[in-house]
Computed example of a mutant assay.
Amino acid sequence: MKIVGINTSPRKGSNSRIALVKALKTAKSKGADTVIYDLNDMNIRTCQADNYCVDNNGKCILDDDLQDVYKSIVESYGVILATPIYMGNVSSLAKIFIDRLHCLLRVDTVRDKKFSIIASQAAIEPPMYEYIKNNLDITSDIFQSIGFELEDVVLLIGNDSEEAILNKKDQLDKAVMVGNKITR
């Protein structure tokens, strides 16, 4: 069983990445092989919206580092997407990744694969929380429409500095829960 972690934060001390690593360590302790992709360190371009993938059985026209990620996803049991929340939504790297999953839309390579989202934000205000939760629900709907089976959407709030999550046992416990659920 392989679990793929997709980190879409550009920061080295990212709270969302710390939570992702915690979830992947939990999955590994349950026997999973794990891999993490830090998209900020990769050569990735935006979707060209040319429908090349539609006409070519899911093959993306772009020959960049995301090709390795696609292969890993196809071989996986599940995927965990980790994103910081910027301006009330997923990071721009998360959006690029989501857009580029269009190539998997019409092929059965991801049917019934598990999927979870871990998101971290600085804000703690309830109105902002509801807005972000709605955006995360939309994001999870996109993954489900591709064929993934949603396991979890976890929003970790109040992380207003790098590595803030390291002092929040309740949030680290939620990351452990994600790792446990995705390996079931």
Score class of each variant (00 low, 15 high):
I73M: 12
V74I: 14
S76H: 01
Y77W: 10
Y77F: 10
G78T: 08
G78K: 01
L81W: 03
I85C: 01
S91T: 14
I96V: 13
F97K: 01
R100P: 11
R100V: 02
H102L: 03
L104M: 15
L105N: 08
L105H: 11
L105M: 10
V107A: 10
V107Q: 09
D108E: 07
V110R: 01
R111M: 15
D112F: 08
K113V: 02
K114L: 02
K114Q: 04
K114H: 01
A119F: 02
S120V: 07
Y129T: 10
E130F: 04
Y131D: 04
Y131T: 06
K133I: 00
L136E: 08
T139M: 11
D141K: 09
D141E: 14
Q144P: 04
Q144M: 14
S145M: 13
S145P: 12
I146G: 00
G147W: 03
E151D: 14
V154L: 12
V154D: 09
L156N: 02
I157V: 09
D160P: 01
E162T: 00
E163R: 10
A164K: 15
A164T: 10
A164G: 05
A164S: 15
K169P: 14
K169S: 12
D170I: 03
Q171L: 10
L172F: 12
D173Y: 08
K174R: 11
M177D: 08
V178L: 12
G179Q: 05
G179K: 03
N180T: 15
I182D: 01
